[in-house]
């Protein structure tokens, strides 16, 4: 890699970044996201590890992860599988237990979140010593790919209503590409009970409630290249329920 400024882990500031990748049937995407993570962490020189938390995928995601561990080493790729699908919140708790970094990245493994933004997250975090840095699709150069008008309208509408009701001090509430200080993430997960889209929203709303500082980085969100992305009536109803619950309880 000609563009490498330094070898991995040699930035010398003692910070280590653990990437939590919860997976379920991501056989196609996992090798690609891991390759990209290794590439961009390698080029930027930050110390890192990737923790794959597979929830018993029937498609053999775990075997793929084992192959990747063989290629990149057991210090870089950690496998922390669980027997069955148990939800996002507990996946993060499970992952953090085994993480050795003092900062934690959470992101989707389906390639909608591009690792090229990771150095920007880290720089942003250092700039203001933020407790958490959230990727945003709604500001600056942020945006989406692969969304039709209906999807955009629902997304913008839901975001507007949430902003009006919750005033969270962050522009992207349901995004799930974020960097946390380890202790902050541990504390937040403890008090978050929601599922699905609402989980990410609850995390950032509770963060504001607990007076954590929040930085934002514009990201491009490329909707699933492999596999189906879902946004049906059920998602919308559960989103509204979650929104109202947060409205009444935070």
């Amino acid at each position: 890699m000609a563009t490498s400024r330094q070898a991995a882990g040699s930035r010398g500031d003692g910070d280590k970044y653990s990437v939590l990748l919860p997976t379920f049937n991501e056989r196609e995407n996992l090798p690609l996201i891991v390759w990209l993570l290794v590439k961009f962490f390698g080029e930027s020189g930050y110390d890192y590890e990737i923790i794959v938390i597979d929830d018993g995928s029937p498609d053999g995601t775990l075997q793929v992860a084992e192959q990747l561990q063989g290629i990149y080493g057991e210090d870089k790729i950690l496998l922390r599988p669980r027997a069955k699908k148990l939800g996002l919140g507990t996946a993060y708790i499970h992952g953090i237990k085994h993480a050795t970094g003092n900062y934690i990245f959470i992101m989707d493994a389906d390639l909608s979140h591009h690792p090229k933004f990771i150095p920007e997250f880290i720089e942003k975090q250092k700039e203001g010593d933020y407790d958490l840095v959230s990727g945003t699709r709604y500001q600056g150069d942020g945006g989406v790919y692969g969304w039709d008008l209906r999807r955009k309208l629902i997304s913008r509408g839901a975001n507007f209503v949430s902003q009006v009701l919750l005033r969270p001090g962050a522009s992207d509430l349901t995004g799930s590409f974020r960097l946390y200080k380890r202790a902050v993430l541990e504390g937040l997960i403890e008090c978050c009970v929601s599922k699905g889209y609402v989980f990410q929203m609850e995390m950032i709303v509770r963060a504001r409630q607990l007076h954590y500082s929040i930085g934002e980085v514009p990201i491009s969100f490329v909707d699933r290249v492999y596999g189906e992305s879902k946004l049906g009536g059920n998602e919308i109803v559960s989103f509204l329920k979650g929104l109202l619950t947060l409205f009444a309880t935070t």
Binding site: D141, G143, Y145, R156, V222
Partner: peptide, 9 residues
Amino acid sequence: TFNDCDDAA
């Protein structure tokens, strides 16, 4: 004005 990230894709 929602950005379409064609280049990113």
